[in-house]
Lab assay of single mutants.
Amino acid sequence: DAEELIELVERALKEGREIILLGVRITSEEAGKWFIEWIRRFL
């Protein structure tokens, strides 16, 4: 579910982890915020 995915992304970014989803590397909080917004819009 989308909320679970958002929580995972937020937690990983807070822990300083690198996330790779759909071939996109997300390493900064700014990118994470963009990704979370995208999830909310399309899922």
Rank of each mutant, 00 (worst) to 15 (best):
I26T: 07
I36S: 02
S28W: 13
I6S: 03
I39C: 07
E10I: 15
I19T: 02
L43W: 13
E10K: 13
I26N: 04
I20H: 03
I26M: 05
E29L: 13
S28Y: 07
E37V: 11
L22V: 05
L8P: 00
W34A: 14
F42R: 04
V24F: 13
L21G: 00
L21Y: 04
L22S: 03
L43S: 03
W34N: 07
R41N: 08
E30T: 08
I36R: 03
K33A: 11
F35V: 09
R40H: 05
A2K: 07
I39H: 00
K14N: 07
G16S: 07
R25A: 10
V24E: 01
D1P: 13
T27M: 12
E37W: 12
I19Y: 04
E4Y: 15
L43N: 02
L5A: 02
E18W: 11
E15A: 10
L22K: 02
L22C: 15
L21T: 01
E3S: 11
E4G: 13
L21F: 07
E15S: 11
R41D: 02
L22I: 08
F35E: 00
L21A: 05
L8R: 08
L13E: 02
F35Q: 01
A12H: 05
E15V: 08
I39W: 04
A12M: 08
R25N: 06
F42L: 11
T27G: 10
E18N: 10
V9R: 01
G16C: 15
A31E: 15
E3C: 15
W38V: 02
A12Q: 03
V9L: 08
L21V: 13
T27R: 07
E3I: 12
E18K: 08
V9S: 00
I36W: 11
I6N: 03
R25T: 08
R40G: 02
E15N: 08
I26P: 03
E4C: 15
A2R: 08
E7I: 11
E7R: 15
I20L: 05
W34V: 05
E18A: 11
E15K: 07
F35P: 00
R17S: 04
G16N: 08
E30S: 10
G32W: 14
G16W: 14
I19S: 00
K33H: 07
L5M: 08
E7C: 15
V24D: 00
R40I: 11
S28K: 03
E30C: 15
R40W: 12
F42G: 02
F42H: 06
L8N: 01
E37K: 09
E18R: 11
S28M: 05
E7G: 13
E18V: 13
E30K: 10
I26F: 06
L21P: 00
L8S: 02
G32P: 06
R11A: 07
I19K: 01
W38R: 01
I20F: 05
G32H: 06
E4Q: 13
L43M: 12
E15D: 10
D1Y: 15
R11S: 05
K33S: 05
I36K: 04
R40V: 07
R40Q: 05
I19M: 04
L8W: 10
R17T: 07
G23S: 08
L22A: 04
E29K: 12
I26A: 05
A12S: 05
L13D: 02
G23I: 12
L22F: 09
I36G: 01
L8D: 01
S28V: 08
R11Q: 08
L5C: 11
A31K: 09
G16Y: 10
E18D: 06
G23R: 08
G16F: 13
I19C: 15
I20E: 05
E29Q: 13
T27H: 11
E30P: 08
L43C: 15
L43V: 07
E7S: 12
G32T: 09
G32L: 15
T27S: 10
L13N: 01
I20W: 06
I20R: 03
S28R: 06
E30V: 13
R40M: 12
E15P: 04
R41L: 11
E18Q: 11
W38F: 09
I6Q: 03
E10R: 14
A31G: 10
I36D: 02
V24M: 06
R11F: 03
W38G: 00
I6C: 13
E30Q: 11
W38S: 00
I6F: 07
D1I: 15
A2N: 06
R40K: 10
W38L: 06
L8Q: 07
L5K: 01
V24Q: 03
R40N: 03
L13K: 02
I19V: 06
G23V: 13
